[in-house]
């Protein structure tokens, strides 16, 4: 559970560290994926760190977030442990989901993390649902639904925002506009120029902020949280940001050029925030170097942990389908292929 804000020096330093941790985690994940150690797909958050960290800095520890396919940054911003995240990416039993979810489904509901999600636009309905529980039980929390610019075109997002707005639910919808829905530029996916203008359709506040500036994101989300907790309903916060890497690792990126990437890198969220803290006398270059070294050691340890962690047992493939295992699955669970399949011949 993450408890930090940008109002104190320690909080600002914590936020910087989280952004550095996200970047180091994702750089490592990208490298390990390229090496063939991590199976499946990975979608990296590098470049967008200020959005997740700025949002979570504005939240209280037991607030909920519902994430996207590009969820590693949200997890770290929310306070999940890179060690168990990395183990999940490696498909190990010690991962957050016991290796059953992988990069696209890391979750820890008890920590308020309602899951990364492989379906574009699925986070907002989840956030509306969490906000419904909060409202129904009169709890002092809010629920954030992250979505990308591409997801703004999804029908279920409209339905989720409309329900939350109509019922004044304590939800916040954070649009991470990284300017590409997979490989298609944002202007070719929407008729509005500013995605937060969609808020007008629901008669709720909609703001667009600099998503490369952690402070700007935090301020906007803090305001939205205040409104949500006052019982006035949801808000839309659009954060304009950019992903430095492809949609997924291995994306050849024919849809953009290096000059565009470099223009955005010049506004790098970590560099600019670090410089600001140095200007304010809250940080020195040496201290930042130390911070980076500590983070790198933490990520190295996470990889070490993941590599050494056990694989799930074959029986685990049958666990967690239901609270109670039905006989339909139990017949396989009790005869898993623990011997490489030899005993399995008479059960299927």
């Amino acid at each position: 559970m993450a408890d930090y804000d940008l109002q104190s020096e320690a909080g600002r330093r914590d936020a910087l560290r989280r952004m550095v941790t996200i970047r180091a985690f994702d750089e490592e994940a990208g490298d390990r994926f390229a090496d063939g150690e991590i199976p499946g797909f990975v979608h990296l958050y590098i470049g967008e760190e200020a959005v997740g960290v700025g949002t979570c800095a504005a939240l209280e520890p037991d607030d909920y977030i519902a994430s996207t396919h590009r969820g590693h940054g949200h997890c770290i911003a929310k306070g999940l442990d890179p060690k168990y995240m990395m183990a999940e990416l490696y498909g190990k039993a010690d991962g957050y989901c016991n290796g059953k979810g992988g990069s696209m489904h890391i979750a820890d509901v008890d920590e308020g993390m309602l899951g990364a999600n492989g379906i574009v636009g699925a986070g907002p309905p989840m956030a509306t649902g969490a906000a419904l529980s909060i409202d129904y039980q009169d709890r002092d929390q809010v629920a954030v639904g992250f979505l990308g610019d591409g997801a703004v075109a999804q029908g279920q997002v409209h339905e989720a925002v409309n329900i939350a707005a109509t019922w004044d639910l304590p939800a916040i919808f954070v649009i991470e506009n990284n300017h590409y829905g997979e490989g298609t530029p944002v202007e070719k996916q929407h008729n509005v120029d500013t995605l937060s203008d969609t808020a007008q359709a629901y008669d709720i506040p909609g703001v667009t902020v600099d998503g490369m500036d952690v402070t700007a994101v935090e301020e906007a989300v803090a305001k939205a949280r205040e409104r949500a907790r006052a019982g006035d309903g949801p808000s839309i916060v659009e954060a304009e940001t950019y992903r430095y890497r492809g949609h997924y690792e291995g994306d050849e990126e024919p849809y953009r050029d290096d000059a565009e990437i470099e223009r955005w890198k010049a506004r790098d969220p970590i560099e600019t925030f670090k410089d600001r803290l140095i200007d304010r006398g809250e940080l020195t270059e040496d201290e930042f170097d130390d911070l980076q070294a500590e983070v790198e050691a933490e990520i190295d340890a996470a990889v070490e942990f993941a590599l050494e962690a056990d694989d799930p047992t074959p029986e685990q493939a049958y666990e967690d389908m239901f609270a109670e295992m039905p006989p339909e699955i139990d017949r396989f669970a009790t005869a898993a292929r623990t011997d490489g399949g030899e005993s399995g011949g008479d059960r299927r």
Binding site: V109, P125, M126, G129, S133, Y136, Q137, Q156, A160
Partner: peptide
Amino acid sequence: GAATGAAATGT
């Protein structure tokens, strides 16, 4: 979707 999210969060 809202019912799903609500079920996951205590109701």
